[in-house]
């Protein structure tokens, strides 16, 4: 509860900060929104329509009002009277209206989110599965060539930029060898889970490879640490089979740091997703963020930032709750 309140305060601060930074960048943001054939009149209208003529703080409070009760776009009553046909009602919680896309931010996010969520789910599944698996193998075979091979290979992959791996996979796996179909996003409703998954495999692998090295190392380090704990000796002294000692006792103890990492990485996934989605031309949140960025589309930027921020905060809360579940010492008496 306390954390949720702190989270909301943080989000408020984050949105205000974005407004302030946006308008203090020195770039003529109205010019961007105005379009190609920008006349001074059109420019004035655009500025009014976007509300950029108002002080920053007023824009921010208007935005907050929209989140709570909803808003009509364009906001200016004069413009509404002039051309009632373009007025769009944006119900609460309204995160704004993108002039560039002529859509509400909510609907833009709603279109893009499933793509990104699917991508993230498959990517997380891949990197956690293989990261933990390889990390475990490396820990058990510590010091052998298997260990060194795994750690080395993941580092090499980590060293390659994401766009390179993405293009590489696209070119060889999909186009040259045709092992997998050329990926394009298929919803589960359209093509079923199999189709959905297969199409996501390449972009998800691209995304996952970036994180894999970290998970291999963390798993390896924490399993090694817990293998040297006294309770592992106790488990062995009981006569437990080595496999059981490893999975039931050693891996369980390494779970806490892993969950923390997963939580934090999930929250920061948007950054990695931008490149991956661009390479594979997936219209997810990453691609949306990129477009909003280059066109100075403030409403979309704010919406995405708040979404990302909310996600980080939520992930932290979930991690804390999971902690208590994993580690009985954290549970409140």
């Amino acid at each position: 509860m306390r954390r949720a309140i702190i989270g909301i305060i943080l989000l408020l601060a984050l949105s205000l900060l974005t407004f302030v930074l946006f308008f203090s960048s020195g770039v003529d943001v109205t010019r961007f929104a105005c379009g190609k054939n920008c006349t001074p009149e059109k420019r004035a209208t655009t500025e009014k329509a976007l509300g950029y003529d108002k002080p920053t703080v007023v824009q921010w409070t208007d935005f907050l009002q929209g989140v709570v009760v909803g808003r009509d776009y364009p906001d200016d009553p004069e413009l509404q009277r002039e051309s009632p046909e373009i007025v769009t009602h944006c119900p609460a919680p309204c995160f704004g209206f993108s002039q560039v896309n002529a859509k509400t931010v909510n609907s833009l996010i709603a279109e893009a989110a499933p793509v990104s969520i699917s991508l993230a789910m498959v990517a997380v599944f891949l990197w956690v599965l293989f990261g933990v698996l390889f990390g475990l193998i490396a820990a058990v075979r510590k010091g052998t060539w298997i260990d060194r091979g795994i750690v080395g290979a993941t580092l090499v992959v980590y060293a390659f930029p994401t766009f390179f791996i993405g293009i590489f996979l696209l070119k060889y796996v999909a186009i040259k060898w045709q092992l997998l179909p050329f990926p394009q996003y298929v919803t589960i409703a359209d093509g079923g889970v199999g189709e959905w998954f297969v199409n996501l495999l390449l972009p998800a692998t691209t995304l996952a490879l970036f994180y894999l090295a970290g998970y291999v190392r963390i798993t390896r380090a924490f399993v090694l640490e817990s293998l040297s704990e006294d309770y592992i000796r106790t488990a062995t002294a009981k006569g437990l089979a080595p496999r059981k000692v490893l999975f039931k006792h050693a891996l369980r103890a390494a779970l806490t740091p892993l969950v923390t990492m997963i939580g934090l990485d999930l929250a920061s996934l948007l950054g990695g997703a931008i490149i991956t989605e661009t390479v594979f031309s997936y219209h997810g949140l990453g691609a949306l963020a990129l477009r909003a960025n280059v066109s100075y589309d403030l409403p979309v930027l704010i919406g995405l930032l708040l979404l990302a921020g909310a996600f980080v905060i939520l992930a932290n809360i979930v991690v804390d709750v999971l902690y208590a579940y994993i580690d009985p010492r954290v549970r409140l008496d």
Binding site: E229, T236, G239, A253, I326
Partner: peptide
């Protein structure tokens, strides 16, 4: 034989037990 014929008690019972 471990735990069945030969058993062991360790010095620090807190670290010798799995905390989870």
């Amino acid at each position: 034989k471990r735990g069945a014929d030969v058993a062991m008690i360790f010095q620090d019972p807190l670290s010798a037990m799995h905390p989870y």
